[in-house]
Write a protein that binds this DNA or RNA. Structure first.
Length: 228
DNA sequence: TTGAGGATTCTC
DNA sequence: AGAATCCTCAAA
């Protein structure tokens, strides 16, 4: 029994095997799961998959460095990186030890411990401002570089991801990933439809491409790498 | 040692 | 639309 993480409800912490798969499969299944740190609980409503060595947009694409080393380690750990000179972002590491892969946690729906989250994010005016972005949720949960490598399975790292029985949405929102340059053309971002905490509810990337607005469903069938 | 750029957020 | 802000990495 670790007392570092409180579990007042019937939560089942996800096992190692959940993460020991292709990030493309792990990502959509993380929707609806709970991130738990002490009293703070948030439900995952937006994620992105990064496929390491096979993914030009991944930090791990050009090999192992000190920064991305956690991604090359065992699955089920937290990969936390620093960016833009001021922000931390958190990922769940996937694939077996030695093979880099991760799922970026982009947004959570705050469920418990909102007072603690608000204290960490004084600029937030609404509940939906607390965790509606990868760096925002790290602020709300107090995640920084000291959490890089934290084990999400054992709970020894003061943070876990668990299930309370809520299933992922049958038809999740899906788009290209946000902020990656250049866009690789793959739709590896998933979100919970209609959830107000999703960072960018409507589209994938905000770029000068109006054509997409009027494209019909069958008209723009891009190459979709084996996702399902 | 240096310089360019970044899986973002906030404000104007 | 632009600033904030500093770590990381590859190259010199």
């Amino acid at each position: 029994m670790t007392e570092s993480v409180s579990a007042p409800e019937a939560y089942a912490v996800l096992g190692r095997e959940f993460y020991d798969r292709d990030p493309l499969r792990v990502a959509p299944e993380l929707l609806g799961k709970l991130v738990i740190r002490g009293r703070r609980v948030g439900r995952i409503v937006e994620v992105e998959a990064y496929r390491g060595s096979e993914d030009p947009a991944s930090h791990a694409y050009r090999g192992k460095t000190r920064r991305n080393a956690t991604m090359f380690g065992p699955p089920g750990r937290l990969y936390v990186y620093f960016t833009y000179g001021m922000h931390w972002c958190a990922n769940a590491v996937c694939w077996p030890d030695g093979r880099a892969g991760a799922v970026l946690l982009r947004a959570l729906a705050p469920e418990q411990g909102l007072d603690e989250m608000s204290a960490m994010r004084p600029k937030a005016r609404h509940t939906r401002d607390l965790c509606s972005g990868p760096a925002k949720l790290c602020q709300a949960f107090g995640l920084d570089g000291s959490f890089d490598g934290a084990d999400l399975v054992s709970g020894a790292g003061d943070i876990v991801i668990a299930s309370d029985g809520v299933a992922p949405p049958r038809s999740p929102g899906r788009s290209e990933r946000i902020g990656v340059t250049p866009s690789t053309g793959v739709r590896w971002r998933w979100w919970w439809p209609g959830d107000p905490n999703v960072s960018r509810p409507s589209a994938g990337k905000r770029v000068p491409e109006r054509r997409d607005r009027h494209a019909r469903p069958g008209a723009q069938r891009k190459a979709q790498p084996a996702a399902d």
